[in-house]
Structure formats: structure tokens, C-alpha cells
Nucleic acid binder design. Structure first.
Lengths: 196, 196, 196, 196
DNA sequence: CGGTAAGCGAGACGGTACGTCTTGTCTTATT
DNA sequence: AATAAGACAAGACGTACCGTCTCGCTTACCG
């Protein structure tokens, strides 16, 4: 028996406005200066009133998070090659691919918001990072199950891997490319006991 | 014959103002909200005019960098235990100690600035991160020299180690404490060939 | 032959909503700040949707005018003492009584609306002021008929009398009380030729 | 010994900005709709930041009052014809002349502000009306001194005279023209005892 | 007694002014 | 020349009210 969504009274929320806002946010986040991403600019570009914007999102971080959930759906696939090195290699390869310049721009916005405000940090951690950490966790858990690495190492590995990614993104200490993916995979998987 | 530094004409720069500004910046960076750190607030708390502030520093990031150079001189010592695991363990132990709450607050300011603006990212990387990366590099180079790890791994290790530190700081995915220091040291040194 | 009002199809207008709106408008007009009287506030207090409000009244001035017609029916009686001084004295005495603080608040709302917008000024003049001007005109016309004053003076007298009332109301140059009523009556009637 | 105005430290207030603001306010008050006179519009037209506007004036009423003090200096002269009728006639004649359409527009702004807010009413009364009331009071006092009218009547007369002016302005019950001036002068002076 | 049509509540929407805030520059007199 | 004091232009902030709109529900009548 289908449970209809219990239509609330009043004018329904405009999906058109919602889409326009998320699209505008992505465009602005991607665009030139990071200072060009204001609530006011989002509203203007989306052809929407500030009232509507603030009604549904309290901060630009929330808008970006929703926009990433909507548009950044480049689901990194979960490889299953049978070895941690193989799995990690493929996973990070795809991850590096997904960090193209526009996306990198958006990610830096998120990092800036997280660094500046604990509340937003938690939002970003739980609504954005969590999914990716979970995917990576899956690979590592399999390796643990196979006896390739220890459980404790698996937990830390996520911070090491994603940490190096964000570190390079934020401080420009190096590119997040295929070389990065290969080397990180090797470094993490090196602990494995191939013969075990 | 000593050549005095060619005393420039006019009123000399006030060292008192400089000190007051750096101190005010540290206090504000440490204090409550991250929003309380403005150029205006720094000037007010230092009892200095904004003019003076802008004359010598172009952004609050520069002020913070100078302030860290002045006050954050808790030089992490370079241990020499003979093994990478030992060296890393001590080094990261001391590093974790230096990331106390007030310092963490300042570091997050820097991360926010770096994420928001490429120019400031480069400044921070070259004026602040570089020194710490160099210290860590020293340890790793010694390990390379001893044949404990390969040179390529040593380069990446810095991003893995500091990446995990900043990642936890920014996104609050976990504490930067002694457990972190021990685990990271173990993870990085694990690749070493003890018997080699 | 009574012509019934040709009952229109559809749901008839809610008299309950109408009453609630007018009552809410009076309460708000009377209440604390003059800024508390918005269409939105009226709708909220009346438990009515803005749609309903705007369907029947185009502006808050129209609402107030209707509310005054409904509630402000403290009809100032038309005295007939035989002399202009006597008539005016009684009339203005009653008028002053009717200008109690809550009413004064409503009147100031009307004045503000009239001053700010010509269209509303005309509405207020024709729907609100006209009745009172007519009542006063009646007294004066009688005096003209008795030869106490000239016709030209009678016309101007209405502006002088009501002008002084509104002037005091708006600019707080003095109270609208019994002393005002007595003095104005005396000043206007002074021109009369008692013996004529 | 001249006491110099004790130059305050810091950048002196920009007289250019002040003039531009007052001029912009007059132009906007005069212009089309009364809704076009906002703080934001004044700032924009004056080429001034809102900050500057709010630094020196808390409300648009204060701006208008200053603008009228600056530009509306059409000093109505104090005639001295020897009789109240003569004096009043000339004074009100000049007064009616000064109430040209642009000025009328500004006056209605003041009336709307006064009616809507007691604080502003008092400001307007004391900073704007007072001067004109004083001028009129002078004429009437002379008439009292000559025995033409009684002192009590003189006080009320100001409310009657200016009241009828504002009443006509606000509610559009009639023009403020030479006929008005003549009739009001006659009505007020009629009480006088010419032979006394 | 079921269809038709307007009224109504709820509340989202685009628009726009509000008054505040921070930025980075400037203009003074003083040191 | 550097300073303090502080005014200035610029423009984003988040809030509030405006008047309009789009729903689903209600309340009458009329056939």
C-alpha cells in the first residue's frame, strides 16, 4: 500500500527555484574568484529572491552541499580486484579524475567553510565526507578481512589518504593526479603481507 | 668600518605598534569566534590605527604568519634515535603537543585563508608549512640514507603525515593527539626494512 | 419591490473573516508602535490569509477606513442651542471627547497615509473626513441662516477647526481637549454679530 | 580672543558629501512618488555610501529637516503694517507663495513622518515648525500689544492658521493660495477691535 | 444529491529597503 | 616619514514586509 507523501497545505515549494539555486551555486563556486560566491550573487544569478534562498538554506555551505549532492554524483566505483593494492589503485585513480579544476574549486570552498566554522565543519564531515570515507572504508575492510592489513591501520588509512588529498588541494603542495593515486595506493598497501 | 643601515629619514617604524599588532592578532585568533579576527578588531585591540596595520601587512593572513613566526616558536626538536620509527614517533609526539587548542585555532585560520585564496595558500605554504616540512624531511632523508625507506616514499610521506593532521584539524574527523602520533609513525615506518 | 442582491454563485464571503480583520486592524492601530500595523500583521492577528485580506482591501488605509466605519461610530451629536457659540461649544466638546488616545492613534495612521499618498488622501477625505465636515457644516449653515456669520467664513471655518485638531494630533503642539474645544468655539463664533 | 573650534583629530567630515546628500534628498522628496525617497536612494543619488548617510543622520526625516534648513531658506518676511489684518495678510500671502508644489511635496513627507512616529513629530515640531510659529507669534504679539486681540486668542490662532494650511496640504481639501491667505487673515483678524 | 464555482487557509515566491558590518583607502594634524 | 584618528565608498549581510501566486479544502447554490 503506497503511502502518499501527505501533501502539506500551502503553495508547494518551487522545484524550479531549487534547481536554479543549486545550478547558480555550482557555477559561481566554479567561476573566477572564490569571493564571487555570496548568497546575494547566488540569488541574483538564480533569478530568485534572497528570501527564498534563506528560507531553505541557512548558509552558502548548505547550498554547496546540496548542489554537490545533486550535481557531483560522479560516483566513484567500488573496485574489487582481490588485492588492496589493486582496489586502492583503481579507487584513487578514479578519485583523482573526479578532482578536476571546477570540482577542486568547490572542494576548496568547503574546506574554507569547515576551517572557519566548527558547525559547518561537522555538516560537511557528516553530509559530504562521510560517503567517500565509507566507500574507502569498504575497500579497507575487505583488506582487513583478507588479512592484508590490521584493523587499526585501516581506520587511520582513511585520514592519511584523504588528508593528503585535501592537503594538496588546500595548500597547493602538489597535484592530485594519477601519480598521486599510484603512490598513495602503494604507500598504504605496502604494509600488507602479500603472502599472508 | 661598520656601515650603519642607512637610517632613513622621517619617523622610524614603531616597534611597539608592531608587537601590539602581532599580540592582538594571536589573542583574537585564539579567542572565541573565528569571525572576531578582523583587521579592524586587530587594530582596535592593538590600540593602533588601521592605516598602520595596512601599511605593513596587506592581509590578516600576513599578520598571522608574522605572529606565528614571533610567538609560535615552539621549535619541534629533531630527534635522532637511529630508526625512522623512533625518530618519527618522537617528532610527531612533540608535534601533537604543539597543536593545543589555541594553536589549533590559529592553524584553522590559516587553512581557511589558504583554501579561499591561492595567493595566500602559496604564502602560507612557503612561509609557514615549508619549515615544518623541512624538519620532517630531514628525518625521512636520514631514513632514506639508512636504506629504511625509498626516496619516493619519503616525499609522499610528508603529505600523508601533515595531510592527516590538517584533515583532522579542519574537518574534526578526530583528535591530533599522542595516539595519532604513534599510529602515524607506525604506518609510515612500517614500510621500512628493519633488517636491511 | 425589494430587489434581492442577486446572490452570486460560489461560496459567499465570510463575515467572520471580515469582522476579525477589522477588529485586528483596530487593535493593531491602537497598539504600541505604529509600525506594528502591516497587512501581514493584520492577517496574522485575524487568523486570516493574506490572500483574503488583499482580495477585499487593497491597502491598510482601506481596512482602517472600514474599521472606523464599523467601530468608530461614536456619532458626534448635532446640538441645536440656538447660537453658533453654543452649538460649536457642544459639538467640539463631544469631538474632543471622541479623540481619546486609541482613536488618536488611528487618526494619525490616516494622516500618515494621506500625507504619503494622494490617492489615499482622497479616499480618506471623501470616505472619512466628509461626514464630520458635513456635520460641522450643518451647524455653520444654521449660523449663516441666522445671520451670525457669513457664508464664506463658514466654509473656511471647517478647515480652521479641523485643521487645528489634526495639527495638534500630528505635530503634538497641544492637546485636543475641552479647553481646545472652548477656545476654538469662541474664536470661530467671535465673528458673529450677536445682535444681528 | 577668538576661540578656535578645537579641530577634532582624524579626517574631517566631507562637506561635499553633506551637500550632495542634502541636495539628493531635496530632489527625491520633490520628485515623483513619495516612495522614491529612501535612505538607499539618497545615498545612491548623492554618490555616497550608506555608511556615511547613517553616520550623520539616523532617519530620512533628519535629512529632510537639514535639507530644508539649508535650501528652504525662503525667509518669510515679518511685515509691519500697523494692523493685524495687514500684517497677517502679507505674511500669509508670502507663506502661500512659499508652498509651491515641490515644497508641498517635502512638507507632506514631514507630515507623514510626524504622524507615523512621535519622536520624529517632536523633532519636526521643534526644529522646523517652531521657527515659523515664532514668526507668526511675533505678528500676533504685536497685535496683542496694540490691544487688537487677546493674548489667549493669539496662542490658539497659530494652530488655527497653520492647522488649516497643513490640513489642506495633507487631505487635499483645498489649495493653499492667495485666497486662502486673505480669508484666513480676515477670519483671524476679525476678532480684533479696530477702534480699540 | 452531485456538480460547479467562488472563498479561504496556508505559505512559497520575486522584489526591494532596511540598518549593520567589514574592507581597504583617504585625509587631517601630530610626533 | 610614520602615526592616531576617523571619515569615506563599496558592497554583502540577514531580516522584514510587500503584493502575487499556487495549492487543496470548504461552503454555498443550483440543476
Amino acid at each position: 500500500m503506497a503511502r502518499e507523501p501527505a501533501r502539506r497545505p500551502g503553495r508547494p515549494r518551487s522545484q524550479h527555484a531549487r534547481q536554479a539555486i543549486l545550478a547558480a551555486a555550482m557555477e559561481l563556486a566554479t567561476a573566477e574568484g572564490p569571493a564571487s560566491l555570496h548568497m546575494e550573487a547566488i540569488a541574483k544569478r538564480a533569478g530568485v529572491s534572497k528570501e527564498t534562498l534563506y528560507r531553505w538554506w541557512r548558509s552558502k555551505t548548505e547550498v554547496i552541499l546540496d548542489a554537490m549532492a545533486e550535481y557531483g554524483q560522479q560516483a566513484v566505483p567500488l573496485p574489487d580486484t582481490g588485492t588492496l593494492l589493486g582496489d586502492l589503485g583503481e579507487f584513487l585513480h578514479a578519485t583523482a579524475d573526479s578532482v578536476n579544476p571546477p570540482t577542486a574549486s568547490v572542494l576548496r570552498h568547503l574546506a574554507a567553510a569547515a576551517a572557519a566554522d566548527e558547525g559547518q565543519a561537522l555538516q560537511i564531515r557528516d553530509r559530504f565526507l562521510a560517503r567517500r570515507r565509507a566507500a574507502l572504508g569498504e575497500l579497507l575492510d575487505r583488506a582487513v578481512a583478507r588479512g592484508e592489513i590490521e584493523a587499526g591501520h585501516a581506520v587511520l588509512a582513511r585520514d592519511l589518504i584523504y588528508g593528503s588529498l585535501w592537503y594538496r588541494l588546500i595548500f597547493r603542495t602538489g597535484p592530485v593526479d594519477h601519480a598521486w593515486a599510484r603512490d598513495v595506493a602503494a604507500a598504504i598497501a605496502a604494509r600488507s603481507r602479500p603472502g599472508a
